Simulated assay, not measured.
Amino acid sequence: MKRTIVIATLTAAALAAGGTVAAFGAGDDEATAQRQTGTNARAAADRDDASADGDFTDDSADDDRTAAPRGSVTAADAIAAALKHTPGTALAADFEDDGAGAWEVTVVQRDGSEHDVRIAPDSGKVLGAQRDADDGNDRDDRAELAAVKGASTDAREAAQAAAAKGTVVEVGLDDDNGAVAWSAETVKGGEHGEWKVALDSGRVTQDRDED
């Protein structure tokens, strides 16, 4: 009888000790899990913050376009089509590759109103035209417009001249220290180029400022 009591007592003590050990073990596992969860959460937060700051973003993306516009309509063609629809002075043409893709031509009419005309890259048809609320009221815009109106080379001719360097994806005005000139961007062989086209002579030179 005493032996049975002793065995029972030892067994109870072992179970009690085991239960205590298990409880501590469970507590350790929970603490470890919490520490790991907290560490993972902090790491995720750090990654999110770094992504927001741009530290871990893909720096391989480049703003310079190296792909030619889809369709057979050139920048010069798009400008001609836009001016036929909305007569005036073309100040810029840019291929907007936003899915379907279209040329966007900026035209200033005689009354000073500025319009954005969208041209289909495959057919040259006008997809739409919208008046710009700013209407070129900025002093620099008025100065550039005045320079263009007295120039021998217009936007369409500038696009044609720059096409000798590659496929034109954008043409517009550039005011470099008071000297206004046409600025054109081209792509050729997967490479991006930037050029200046003189307002008077139409001479094309490389834009060294953008190297």
Results as ranks from 00 to 15, higher is better:
6 V>K: 07
8 A>L: 14
10 L>V: 15
14 A>R: 05
14 A>H: 07
18 G>M: 11
19 G>I: 08
19 G>M: 10
21 V>W: 14
23 A>N: 11
24 F>W: 13
25 G>W: 12
26 A>R: 10
29 D>M: 10
29 D>E: 11
30 E>H: 11
35 R>I: 10
37 T>N: 14
39 T>W: 07
40 N>M: 13
44 A>W: 04
45 A>H: 09
45 A>S: 13
48 D>E: 15
58 D>S: 12
58 D>I: 10
61 A>Y: 13
62 D>G: 08
62 D>N: 14
65 R>M: 03
68 A>T: 06
71 G>L: 02
73 V>F: 01
75 A>C: 07
77 D>Q: 03
80 A>V: 07
82 A>M: 02
83 L>T: 05
85 H>D: 15
86 T>P: 00
86 T>F: 01
87 P>W: 01
88 G>K: 03
95 F>G: 01
96 E>S: 06
98 D>Q: 08
98 D>C: 05
101 G>Y: 06
103 W>Y: 05
103 W>T: 00
105 V>M: 05
107 V>E: 03
110 R>L: 04
113 S>P: 03
113 S>E: 11
114 E>V: 15
118 R>Y: 02
118 R>T: 06
120 A>K: 00
122 D>I: 00
124 G>E: 07
125 K>N: 13
125 K>W: 00
127 L>M: 10
127 L>W: 00
129 A>E: 11
129 A>L: 05
131 R>L: 09
131 R>G: 14
133 A>Q: 11
144 E>A: 11
148 V>R: 03
150 G>K: 09
151 A>T: 01
152 S>C: 04
154 D>T: 04
155 A>M: 04
155 A>C: 07
156 R>G: 05
156 R>W: 01
162 A>E: 01
163 A>S: 15
164 A>G: 10
164 A>E: 13
164 A>Y: 01
167 T>Y: 08
167 T>M: 08
167 T>D: 10
171 V>L: 06
172 G>R: 04
172 G>E: 06
172 G>L: 02
174 D>N: 11
176 D>T: 12
181 A>F: 03
181 A>T: 14
182 W>D: 03
185 E>S: 12
186 T>R: 03
187 V>S: 06
187 V>W: 01
188 K>F: 08
190 G>S: 06
191 E>F: 02
194 E>V: 11
198 A>M: 02
202 G>F: 10
207 D>M: 08
207 D>Y: 06
209 D>W: 11
209 D>P: 09
209 D>M: 07
211 D>M: 09
